[in-house]
Nucleic acid binder design. Structure first.
Lengths: 108, 108
DNA sequence: TCTCGGTAGGTTGCATTGCAAGGTAGCGTG
DNA sequence: CACGCTACCTTGCAATGCAACCTACCGAGA
């Protein structure tokens, strides 16, 4: 899978998943990873960045099977950004498919 | 528009447009730019790279209204890559929409 | 002639972001 | 008490889009 495709979209994916409910880092990597191949080395810096930019808040919660988990909870800003990014993404993919699809149809 | 979204996709766009017929750089920037905001500083290095990797061949053609144009013509490798990338792209966007859309639908 | 705007091609340095590789630590099991 | 699993995190690197800037050809107008 072309790694470049993912640039910027993972941010939208994380925000979208958190919109449904609080999750912890490892869980996010796992959930996103079911559809898109992603590594932990990608998710943690991403979470750190998004948190620093105020997209979510963090709280710790103990686990019976391992170390405490760090849960991420969307802020208002995070929700708004998710909506904006989702719109931009749909717009973008539509424009791309005009170029790609439109051409493939009636090639010589 | 999120610049990161474009990473990797522009390559597919250029290959797709050239599939329909030979084009020169300035023209490509213009055509792609009708759907996706793109700058010349992006397209020329991209063309150089793709050419170096054997995706297309180049020939010069004079123009009555300006300097000679450098036309790009897809090679077999270029065509094959376009097909592969287009498949990957469609697969990828589908997976992303599972994460994004699937969540938005039944959020609390 | 000289300059200017449009066309066309190009380069440099920078910012962003995904990833492999590696590290720390809590916990239960053998 | 060593191992494996969960969970978090950091470092250095690679890829690629972009602003800014440069060169050069051409015709029109001063």
């Amino acid at each position: 899978m072309n790694a470049q495709f993912k640039k910027g979209v993972l941010e939208l994916c994380v925000l979208s998943l958190l919109k449904k409910g609080d999750k912890y880092g490892y869980e996010l990597a796992d959930t996103v990873g079911k559809n898109i191949d992603i590594s932990e080395g990608t998710i943690y810096p991403l979470l750190k960045r998004l948190r620093a930019e105020g997209y979510f808040e963090v709280y710790l919660k103990e686990s019976s099977s391992g170390p405490a988990r760090k849960y991420y909870k969307l802020t208002k800003k995070g929700e708004d950004t998710q909506v904006l990014l989702a719109e931009e993404w749909q717009d973008f993919t539509k424009n791309v498919s005009v170029i790609i699809g439109g051409i493939n149809n009636d090639k010589n």
